[in-house]
Amino acid sequence: MLSFLIRRLLQTIPTVLAVVLLVFVLFSVVPGSIASTISDDVDPQVELRLKQQLGLNDPIYVRFGNYIGKLAIGDFGTSFRTREPVTSMIAKRAWPTLQLIFTAMAFSVLLGVPLGFVAALRPGGLVDSAAMIVAVTGLSIAKFWLGLVIMYVFALKLGWLPSFGYGDGGLKHLLLPALTLGVSPMALFARTTRAAVLEIMTADFVRTARSKGMSETRVVKWHVMRNALVIILTTVGLQFGGLMGQAVVVEKLFSWPGIGSLLVDSVLQRDIPAVQGSILVVVLAFLAINLLVDLLYGVIDPRIRYA
């Protein structure tokens, strides 16, 4: 297990390096300079001095080398915009994003998986048809529009919840953005679960279990559910990464103070260190969650060994 963990951690290094290189090169070649980030009337001499201070006049490979060197000691650089260390900017935004994503994920798993299960147990029935209509609709709706509809209904019409903001970070303000973010993965989980359960229900080992006289409840609980979980878990892992991307839209819409809105602001204002740092954190989170999923495979299915 430990050697598997070390090997997987080592495997992430080339992925992280590739992402860092890609983001670094991309933002080094796009038009715009630090001058337009700071002010529209910078003295040319000051601009030159500033570029020298920040090493922006060095060749790109030197800059990349310096950047990697700083990254190795956890220094993401200083924001052009706020003059703050990027690590501290990201640290302030990390918890709200995690809150949002985990709540959205909890909602989508708790609703989507049972929905898919129930649908698969009676394929073609009323529940199945209704569940699949919900799933396809959930997958098709644009987040921005859905968020506005949710705001309109739950805040303006029903008056149950505030329409925007972070409040004290509690559930009251979290529910609507999490619901908006969670609808699409909920739909995906419902569909994936249904497909996985349907496939497992016709597998040989299920037929054998039934022929041995095992009750349908035990068949579903011990054979179908356990095997389906591996597939569901893979989808959940992949969806975490997707949610981090989709959170950008939801955070902006609901004035939620996460990494997504930091990333958008940084891109729009050409704050390259902040963009690089934010993207890197998202990528690292994605890799960490997928590693966790790999480790959980073994817990769910003991046949999987970390050779």
């Binding site: 968020g147 506005l148 705001m151 309109y152 805040a155 303006l156 008056g159 505030p162 329409s163 925007f164 903001g165 902006k252 819409l253 609901f254 004035s255």
Partner: peptide, 18 residues
């Protein structure tokens, strides 16, 4: 001072007296 970059979201919040 609340940051609200999205006009449609501001509209809902204004009508909702927030």
């Amino acid at each position: 001072v609340s940051i609200m970059g999205e006009a449609a979201a501001r509209d809902v919040a204004f009508r909702n007296k927030e």
